[in-house]
Design a protein around this nucleic acid. Structure first.
Length: 280
DNA sequence: CCAAGGCCTGAATG
DNA sequence: ACATTCAGGCCTT
């Protein structure tokens, strides 16, 4: 049954949240940690490992959330235009490595680097008569040399990736624990990882650790705030400092509410599409 | 606390 | 061609 809140698989996958996805025929295939998800246009999921996931966060009351974030004409427009867009719940380790890799880069290159990493360090499997490489396990990346990781085209981020993997193995980072923590506590924790600043942390929190008030502020979002919200959130400087990021985030949550992360995703999608930016 | 500069890399731009 | 800029930031000075 089609209604205003039907999930749009294509839009959700092509929104900068995930990178290791490809479409084959009527299905999307994507790497999610040690699992592969096969998704039909209607949003039904088959999992390589037969694991049940709530990848599209169906447990969220999307109608309520959309009402909650529709505080102004811009979000209303974005929500109306991309009503089927969802926040995807990803494997946390893959999400962390993906967004460490993303810093000061672009989608095409992030995808290419992550593919190389999976090919080099991930397990090769067959699913649906197709070949895939699962995402590298933390131990594998933790034990890899910096140069081996660099060969995937990640440059100076190689040491960050190794260290993040190492901390995961040593359980200095515990994703299950962070899922239960408050937004701020979880954020403080993962910001201790080298290569993880405010923006990367917010992405990991929003896309894999269930923190819906997280609102990643990247160049695009700053541009959007300057363009449409200059009256509400006056941005003084171009380079946003850590303290300003925190202050801004507080103002944003005051405006958009506890599901601010959803509003970020709708606004981001709308603006990128307006600029005809390519996704996967 | 803030501002400025550097950083791997490769596609896009001039 | 070839140089420079820029891309979904972060770290150091």
């Amino acid at each position: 049954m089609q209604n205003n809140y039907t999930i749009n698989v294509e839009n959700s996958i092509n929104s900068g949240q995930v990178f290791l996805w490809r479409k084959n025929g009527n299905y999307w295939y994507g790497i999610n940690g040690q699992d592969i998800l096969k998704i039909s246009d209607s949003g039904s999921i088959r999992s390589y490992q037969n694991i049940k996931t709530d990848f599209f966060r169906k447990r969220d009351n999307i109608e309520k959330i959309i009402k909650s974030i529709s505080k102004d004409s811009i979000t209303k427009k974005a929500v109306k235009q991309y009503a089927g867009l969802r926040i995807l719940e990803q494997d946390p380790f893959q999400c962390l490595i993906s967004f460490i890799t993303s810093s000061n880069s672009n989608i095409q290159k992030i995808k290419s680097s992550l593919e190389k990493m999976s090919k080099k360090f991930g397990i090769k499997v067959k699913f649906d008569n197709q070949e895939f490489f699962l995402f590298p396990k933390p131990e594998k990346l933790a034990n890899a040399s910096i140069n081996e990781i660099k060969s995937c085209g990640v440059g100076y981020r190689a040491r960050f990736i190794k260290e993040a993997a190492n901390r995961t193995v040593l359980e200095k980072i515990n994703f299950e624990y962070l899922k239960k923590s408050s937004y701020q506590d979880a954020k403080d924790e993962i910001c201790l990882i080298p290569g993880v600043g405010n923006k990367v942390a917010d992405c990991v929190l929003l896309f894999s650790l269930n923190k819906l008030e997280s609102f990643p502020l990247d160049r695009w979002m700053i541009r959007i705030l300057e363009k449409y919200y200059s009256d509400k959130f006056q941005l003084k400087t171009k380079t946003i400092t850590e303290k300003q990021y925190g202050i801004l985030h507080e103002k944003i949550v005051n405006h958009f509410g506890p599901y601010a992360g959803y509003s970020q995703q709708f606004l981001f999608k709308m603006e990128r599409e307006n600029y005809q930016k390519k996704w996967l």
